[in-house]
């Protein structure tokens, strides 16, 4: 479903050009669970932004479900994000002073889903990530970190996207809640969703079925984790 060909990204500041991505090519099939791992400065965030259609590459081609999206305008990219991609961020990015339910309904409003159907869809999505129904009308800032991230995942899922893109989703969580969140991603993958996980921690990447190592804007390794481990196995 994703194919990138020789993608580069160059940032210019004044006369200085910084080449963040130096010609990256790979493809990801439907239903894969891929971790993109690399140290900070490796270009993984830039790659994630391009994969998430938040940014366009300086050169190269990006085919998302067969469509070349590398030269689309802002609004055309917004359309793809709206329909096809669900984001999960390190800092959750929930709307403050807004109820859990309303946070999850938000993408549906932009997708012009009829008003009457929205709450039902949002509730289903929240239940699927294991959030208790008693929490639905709490304000987002009253939740614990783990709950917030699960609300964020529910929000990412609510439009039924074909790709879930998670940027350091456990970065702001303690290891225990982090594990719960990772389990959630695994379950989503089991249900057939494509998940891309960006992280700089190896043990988190081991949850995925495939790992792409990035360093200095280049892929240095692309391996299949033949037996992706469970949380318990990693602990041992």
């Amino acid at each position: 479903m994703i194919e990138i060909k020789n993608i580069t990204k160059v940032y210019k500041s004044g006369d200085v050009e910084t080449k963040v991505l130096k010609g990256i090519s790979f493809s990801i099939n439907d239903g894969e669970f891929v971790a993109i791992i690399g140290p900070s400065g490796s270009g993984k965030s830039t790659l994630m932004h391009i994969l998430g259609c938040l940014d366009t590459p300086s050169s190269g081609q990006y085919f998302f479900e067969g469509q070349d999206v590398s030269q689309l305008s802002d609004d055309e990219l917004a359309d793809i994000r709206k329909k096809k991609i669900g984001f999960v961020f390190q800092s959750f990015n929930l709307l403050p002073r807004t109820t859990v339910l309303r946070n999850v309904v938000l993408p549906l409003a932009y997708a012009n889903i009829p008003k009457g159907e929205r709450e039902e869809i949002a509730k289903k999505s929240l239940l699927s990530v294991g959030l208790d129904e008693t929490r639905f009308h709490h304000l987002s800032n009253q939740l614990s970190g783990g709950e917030m991230q699960r609300v964020a995942i529910a929000r990412a899922l609510v439009n039924n996207p074909s790709l879930i893109l998670a940027d350091e989703p456990t970065g702001n969580l303690d290891s225990k809640t982090g594990e719960v969140v990772l389990e959630t991603f695994k379950n989503l993958n089991k249900q057939g969703r494509t998940v891309i996980l960006i992280t700089h921690e190896k043990y988190i990447a081991e949850h995925a079925k495939r790992t792409i190592f990035l360093k200095d804007g280049e892929i240095i390794e692309d391996v299949i984790n033949h037996r992706s481990k469970t949380v318990q196995q990693i602990k041992e």
Binding site: L54, D79, K82, N93
Partner: peptide, 16 residues
């Protein structure tokens, strides 16, 4: 600003 960023990430267009 962050809220605007999020709204854009979930598909809000400039006009929205």
């Amino acid at each position: 600003t962050r809220e605007i960023g999020l709204r854009k990430a979930v598909g809000a267009k400039r006009l929205d």
